[in-house]
Design a protein around this nucleic acid. Structure first.
Lengths: 288, 288
DNA sequence: TTCCATTGAATGGGTGATCCATTTAATAAT
DNA sequence: ATTATTAAATGGATCACCCATTCAATGGAA
């Protein structure tokens, strides 16, 4: 990949022999050449260009989930970049949930079905960085869940209601056996099922992301203090009954009241409710 | 960084001299050593470990926006990894909006204030990958905007209303001068301002992300067919008046009716409304 | 003194060669 | 037929460079 002769790689014929630096930048040659007076504030870097090109192919429908990109060595050569910088791009896309990299012969970079959990990470980062506050997140959650109840009442199907019913049974069992943290896990799942019952994956994704963070706080609280929401399964059953009856007003009222009591639980002894404790590490079932 | 003596780097003393491979993996040594029977499905890779560690420092509050990480060469040495793999991690974090990499002496990796636009990219990818549909996105937008109206009526401050007023004036000007695409840009800004007036950045972030996608479709439609929503500024003024009066019912009704007419506009000649056209490339003001 | 050009070091951006570990298909041995 | 063995392809990681940009320090000119 250089004008200097490589000791091992066979000398590939080239129509022109641009130097290394020039080839590295010619991905963006046209763009920079078109701006004679003003140079861009922030020079476009190679890996950004690569990411964008792959995303472009995706948006264009040329690349679809399940497709495989050429092998790193080959794709790097096609793009005229080093393998290292190509890997930076692939890594970024992998973190974005767009690709999955798989080793071995018959391995490669495969376009994935979108990973909706990615939004969780966005929320987590925003919270870590102080861009959003816990208060804003809680408030948003209450409002969005209110919306979810409306949509769930309108759209929930039998299978959704059954799944919620099964979840409540697991919650009861965990309660009886005193597995408090498992019960938190059940709660997380409950909201996930509820969100799914709206039939709208965008809404569901949003709800899941705020719920995931919220549950970290609940988990941390329960783990540290051992408190437990009283009559949880019972309240859930009442709510599910209202949902089954498509009674938006009642379901909405029940959920809101429950959310408020949870909030009170979290806010007592506020010193213990550290952002850092809740976010610090991954908890069971909350991977990523 | 190797047991083989480097020709230039001074030989650093080591208590043990593990080979290169071992050092590369010892970040996760404890984890793998603790599972004698079952090996993990998906071996943890170095860059993932690095990303997680940095995020951990972030969640712990050890790293805050504005802080600078050690230089690549030094940090790589501290972590016992190669500079290349460290860069893969930094790249991923940069794409995630957590870091900003800056060249030159006094440059480095700086922790950023969170970039809320990141959620836009998530939405865009989900749409590209077919994980969510345009219908779901539109539906979610209607519902979420309904929520926004409620919150805006409750929380909008004078400055928010003034900003909306100024935006409407720009819209009028663009209309008079026939700058249709600029008017689309005004619309995008309008919803952004409206979302901000809720006073909740989580809600605002969500609204912005769905609006950004929606506006790509509007942009593509206007650019291709030259159609223009009639009496746009006028409708906006009516809405703003209702908002100023804190009249949730009226504001909500006005907005919903407007959204429906926009939807009708988009859906006429559905063949032209290609997902690919709308998502394919970056448009003015819609960077990222 | 003040101002501006020069220089040099630090830093991110990028390259190419090389090795390791994993996976899988082809092949050989049983 | 079944089971080891082998070989090739691929991602994972490293090393040693080089380039381009930035900025503080330096030093000479006004």
């Amino acid at each position: 990949m250089s004008t200097k002769s490589s000791p091992r790689a066979p000398q590939r014929p080239r129509t022109a022999s641009p130097n290394r630096r020039e080839r590295a930048t010619d991905l963006r040659a046209a763009a920079t050449a078109a701006t004679p007076t003003f140079k861009p504030i922030h020079t476009r870097r190679t890996f950004e260009e690569i990411c964008e090109r792959i995303r472009e192919q995706l948006a264009l429908g040329v690349l679809k989930p399940g497709d495989k990109l050429p092998a790193e060595r080959e794709l790097a050569q096609q793009l005229g970049v080093s393998r290292n910088v190509l890997r930076e791009a692939l890594r970024s896309l992998e973190m974005a949930g767009v690709l999955r990299l798989q080793k071995g012969v018959k391995g490669g970079a495969f376009i994935q079905q979108g990973d909706t959990r990615r939004m969780n990470e966005v929320m987590r980062d925003m919270l870590s960085l102080g861009t959003i506050s816990v208060r804003e997140l809680s408030e948003a959650r209450v409002h969005v869940l209110d919306l979810v109840v409306q949509l769930a009442c309108a759209n929930a199907r039998r299978a959704d209601l059954d799944a919620l019913e099964a979840n409540i049974e697991r919650t009861e069992l965990a309660t009886k056996e005193g597995r408090l943290l498992d019960r938190v896990e059940c709660s997380r799942e409950f909201y996930k099922l509820l969100a799914a019952s709206t039939g709208n994956k965008v809404i569901a994704m949003i709800v899941d992301s705020v719920t995931e963070i919220h549950m970290r706080f609940v988990y941390a609280k329960v783990a540290s203090s051992g408190v437990a929401m009283a009559r949880l399964a019972e309240k859930r059953r009442q709510f599910l009954a209202a949902l089954s009856e498509r009674d938006v007003a009642l379901a909405s009222r029940l959920l809101r009241s429950h959310l408020e009591s949870v909030q009170r639980m979290l806010e007592q002894d506020p010193g213990a409710m550290s952002l850092h404790v809740a976010l610090a590490d991954v908890q069971p079932g909350m991977r990523r």
